Amino acid sequence: MRGVPFSVPAPLRRRAALCGALLLATSCGWGGTGGEDGGRLPAAPTGVTAEAGSATSVHVMWNAVTAGDGIDGYEVYRGTTKVKEVPASEHMVDVTRLKPSTTYVFTVRARDTEGRLGPSSREVRARTPAAAAADRSAPTRPSALRGRAVGSRAAQLSWSASRDDRGVVSYDVHQGGVKIHSVGGGQTATVVTGLRPGTRYAFTVRARDAADNVSPAGAVVRLTTPGSDDGRAAAPTGFRAASRRSDGAYYIDLSWVPPRTDGVITEYEVHLDGRPATSLVFGGKPPRDRATYSFYVGREAGVSHRVRLRPRLPDGTWGGFSAERTVTTGTAATGRQPR
């Protein structure tokens, strides 16, 4: 955990002033269990599991953690050594460069957007299998993949076992082209959680052996979770739009508050006059409080445009649209009227 300087940080000075005014210091988090600025630390991740993925790798998974200040990422430890850091949108990781025939202990800690680390999760253990010498043969692809929705936010998948000359160590579950889950080689069914109601998903499964040879993907199974989700809960809020002139051309300046999700949103799709106009992807650390973006719309004044945008959520699906704004080039209007 980062060290605390001797001088009192500005957040602590502000919180101390507030607590003094209220004469209720304990209500402001001075009980000794908070972070550097007195706020509550993130909770310990739950649902942590570890499965050997090969003779030299282990797949670690956990449930998302929620926190008042938001989660910025997770740290994964092998024993007391930090081996991986992942962003808040990811709840799994492959720990590689391990030794065959060895038992390892893993824990996970959550880090919030203020940089504070929460307590460690419970310890989980996984043992890597023995190395397979000169094994270049991948397992056969899993067959007979079947899936069904389990409620509106989960799906149950099952498949027939793959064959391998040395034995299958694990199965990787992919949603679209992204690996989202892994189970041991003796398991041919699993439940995928964290889905959205009323959403269509496509899953595939691949088999992996001890030498890290991976099979081709089995057939795609498609399913739709029941219920309705118009995306409003995952739509940007506080959406604003204004026209701006620069070097003889007109631009539309946008700003919005990103929706709160379990992970970080890095991509948005902007619609202009009812059609997709452009996509933007934030590199580095995406904004969480208010995001801004500007794009070119031409050189003619007096032209009205309707604009809105939607986020791509951490599970790969699209969230809901923001309110729609109308902006006219060459005017100072902000287009606050919703459609």
Rank of each mutant, 00 (worst) to 15 (best):
G248I: 11
R78F: 01
A233N: 07
S160D: 15
R146L: 07
G31Q: 12
Y250M: 04
T66H: 03
A50S: 11
S170G: 01
G248H: 12
D315I: 11
T102K: 15
S228N: 10
P197K: 07
Q156F: 05
D164F: 01
Y296K: 14
V124A: 05
D209W: 00
E51Y: 01
S121Y: 03
P142G: 09
V150D: 13
P286N: 07
W159L: 10
G302R: 12
S120V: 00
D253Y: 03
L145C: 05
V264T: 15
P5G: 13
D273N: 14
Y296M: 02
F6A: 15
R78A: 03
V150I: 13
G34K: 09
A202I: 11
G167E: 04
T107F: 06
P311M: 13
A134H: 15
R310F: 01
D230Y: 04
R310K: 14
D262W: 12
R290T: 13
T81A: 14
E36C: 03
P9V: 06
A277P: 08
G184S: 12
V205A: 01
P286G: 07
V83I: 00
E114T: 11
G3L: 05
R2F: 01
H91Y: 00
R111M: 14
I265S: 03
G231K: 10
R260L: 12
L23P: 00
W30N: 14
T66D: 08
A10M: 07
D247Y: 08
Y251G: 01
V307T: 15
Y171W: 02
R232F: 03
A277F: 12
L272N: 04
